[in-house]
């Protein structure tokens, strides 16, 4: 089976200027990332702020062009940003952002906005579009009488439902969700997470779910990739990755997560701040904070390689241990 979307050795570098005459410094937001998502599958991407997870999401949709490597959608190379081919392809892949209020137009009713992709991509006869909007609203759990509401009249959860309905309008094959539930309260978050997983199951949509919340990702994703400073450091199925993390960063991430009713004692608390992506440490980017770093970690960047069946990790120590075990 060919993957729906496949990325090979993606690189994205931003130039940062600190003043009008200063030399730019370069931020390697995404470095050497390869991944693939199969139809109907959900890939979770987790990492802290500045890890490049949002940039990666945008690159997979072709919104941020890759400076190195390539993205293939259904086996074909991604057309250039802004070309008619790219626009046509956008009907098949949609993006849901964190902040629904910013993603919606304040001066249009939500029904108009949900129907807009149908008009843009000329999907179905004009007369049937109103019916399709009603179906979409029902699918995401909005009441028919809310069709004429403006975004400010809805609650945060309802707005995010409207954004998801709009993203589903063109019957996409891929949905990239960038922190879609992070701004919502816990009780509403659970509603939207359940809805996303139902919609995905009914429509067979592949999903890339980007979030800093390990618990939500674990619940939705089939596979999870953990990012640190622009690179994937560990990837495995969501059933095992948080249960038995191998990479020291994944271990720290799992350990730092507050679990209701459990005290903080006995947890791994990482010292130090996440380093500035503009000043990436040499070798393994995680070595200044890593409790098990060795000499080799300071000089050579570990490659992402298979450490056990169905799991890859980019760590010298984990790779050595895997070699000993094998």
């Amino acid at each position: 089976m060919t993957p729906l979307i496949e990325a090979k050795e993606l690189v994205r570098i931003y130039a940062l200027r600190h003043g009008p005459f200063s030399r730019p410094s370069f931020v390697r937001a995404v470095e050497d990332i390869s991944l693939s998502v199969f139809p109907g599958e959900t890939l979770g991407i987790v990492g802290e702020s500045g890890s490049g997870k949002s940039t990666l999401g945008r690159m997979l949709l072709g919104i941020d062009p890759a400076q190195g490597g390539e993205v293939r959608f259904e086996g074909q190379p991604m057309p250039r940003l802004g070309t008619p081919e790219w626009r046509a392809l956008r009907a098949k892949m949609q993006l849901v952002y964190q902040d629904p209020l910013a993603a919606l137009d304040r001066r249009q009713t939500i029904a108009t906005q949900i129907g807009e992709p149908l008009d843009i991509h000329r999907i179905g006869p004009r007369e049937s579009r109103a019916g399709r909007v009603e179906d979409l609203m029902a699918a995401v759990g909005l009441r028919p009488d809310q069709a004429g509401s403006y975004p400010h009249e809805l609650s945060g959860g309802q707005r995010q439902r409207a954004v998801i309905a709009r993203a589903l309008a063109a019957r996409p094959k891929l949905l990239v969700c960038d922190e879609p539930v992070s701004a919502l309260d816990v009780s509403i978050q659970a509603q939207v997470v359940n809805m996303l997983s139902d919609l995905q199951e009914e429509n067979g949509i592949a999903m890339i779910f980007i979030s800093h919340d390990l618990k939500v990702v674990r619940n939705l994703a089939d596979r999870v990739a953990v990012m640190y400073l622009g690179r994937i450091v560990e990837e495995a199925s969501s059933d095992v990755i948080f249960q038995s993390p191998r990479h020291p960063y994944t271990k720290a991430l799992v350990s730092s997560m507050p679990i209701p009713g459990k005290k903080l004692e006995g947890r791994v608390i990482l010292q130090g701040e996440p380093p500035n992506p503009a000043a990436r440490p040499s070798g393994c980017a995680f070595h200044p904070r890593c409790p098990v770093a060795r000499d080799i970690c300071r000089t050579s960047t570990p490659a992402l390689r298979s450490v056990e069946t169905g799991r890859t990790a980019a760590c010298h120590v984990v790779a050595d241990n895997a070699a000993i075990a094998a």
């Binding site: 609650s155 959860g157 009780s187 509403i188 659970a190 509603q191 359940n194 948080f242 679990i259």
Partner: peptide, 24 residues
């Protein structure tokens, strides 16, 4: 009780979340 149920769990089998219906 509803707040506890709505939190996704990090361990154990993956289960459907139990949201609190409606809004504040």
């Amino acid at each position: 009780r509803g707040l506890f149920d709505a939190i996704p769990r990090i361990d154990g089998p993956r289960k459907r979340l139990i949201p609190i219906p409606g809004t504040v």
